[in-house]
Design a protein around this nucleic acid. Sequence first.
DNA 1: AATACGTCAGAGGTCAGACCTTTGAATTTA
DNA 2: TAAATTCAAAGGTCTGACCTCTGACGTATT
Lengths: 241, 241
Amino acid sequence: MSIRPDSRHLYLQVIDQLKRDMKEGKYKEREKLPSEYELSRMLGVSRATLREALRVLEEENIVFRKHGVGTFVNPKPIFSSGIEQLNSVTAMIEDSGKKAGTQYITSEVTKLSAEDKEQFADDELQSVFKIERVRTADNKPVVFCIDKLPENLLPQNSIKREESLFKALEKYANIHVSYALTRIEPVSYQQRIFNILNCDPSQPLLLLKQLHYTEKDEPVLYSSNYFRSDFFRFEVVRKRM
Amino acid sequence: MSIRPDSRHLYLQVIDQLKRDMKEGKYKEREKLPSEYELSRMLGVSRATLREALRVLEEENIVFRKHGVGTFVNPKPIFSSGIEQLNSVTAMIEDSGKKAGTQYITSEVTKLSAEDKEQFADDELQSVFKIERVRTADNKPVVFCIDKLPENLLPQNSIKREESLFKALEKYANIHVSYALTRIEPVSYQQRIFNILNCDPSQPLLLLKQLHYTEKDEPVLYSSNYFRSDFFRFEVVRKRM
DNA sequence: AATACGTCAGAGGTCAGACCTTTGAATTTA
DNA sequence: TAAATTCAAAGGTCTGACCTCTGACGTATT
């Protein structure tokens, strides 16, 4: 019923397994994967199911297929740092090899602003829990975060026990953030924020306003993150349609 | 109703046909598509092939499938304006209902800068054709573009006959831009650019540095586009992995 | 009546096995 | 030696079957 150990669709499990194998170096960049027939046998699924998985991996630019030749692992120039991949700020910092830290500025319950109301689109919702934090990499401030989530979603103070808000949501509310709708904005000089991040106007900031959703498309977290652009890079592959 | 013969793979043609049908309102938002069996018959392909197409559409967030229920057309909040979709600046302006215009500032042949060399990664390439333009929407300057492409790729002055560089490349060099690797950067105040765009420092700009590629992964165009953020919005769906 | 349960049809998910098309390389031929 | 031919391997497509999930509807229970 509740917990779903491995009742997820087969092709999704195959995707995960293949990604795991690639990460562990079983299949390396530019290398040819075994043929579809072999792979399907190795994984214990039908060729049709394997192909569903490969189709997704190809869409995600992780794999490249050539008719009559084979399936190859793409070199991963962008795929791992692309903006379309959603990570917690904690994960982004740690991925760069730095130590992630957090300084809490304020955390309080407030009424929803007009913008918040528009975002959450929930007439019931009266107030949100608002958290302002500075995230640090090796103790240097690199991101200023304003997070707002429905009141009472998380037990008071549970947040401070976890480095990542994503992890806290999973641990204390059994909520898994699945995706986020993100608006990308440049930031003009705002003294308070630049002071907090200890940078001057010549180091422009990038603002990501993100509304995070669960698997069931319920909005659970609205974040405004101000990134120091000398520390973070955002890239994306844009495809012609 | 069968799909026209075409050299491209069948499932790609199916994708195009379905997108066309959705655009033309044959299948509307939130609406359920015919069942896979029916659809495959309607399109004259096997269910397996249809499923390959649907898998891609699902990956692109255009369609949503639920086991035991059906396949539904996603409402398209982002899919049409998402940053992962590459359009020419001309197309972006026209999509917003404005009239696209161009003011040429300079166009000249220059040696490659260090950055250019790194981007094109072509030892043969000695010099590039550099074009600086201001793009206007209803005669208001909204984007400042610096485009660099290998010398002699286009006939001299052919560019000025086309509004869009993409179109010129197709028309005069039979080159089709397929995708671009894009770096997103905020911009600190630079007097020249702000003067050209006739805006003040409180209207921050967004800079997209884009290396455009052909289908064969050959770099053909390196662009730096400074967008007025009060006119353009960039959004992206970020997915958790 | 209101609720719970059982059944069933329809939809997507998975499977097996066959044949088609493209590629690249080995082989043959001019 | 170089061009043409052949061939095997790999991905692309097809058929048709069965599995599993979901929602609806009818019946039994409370």
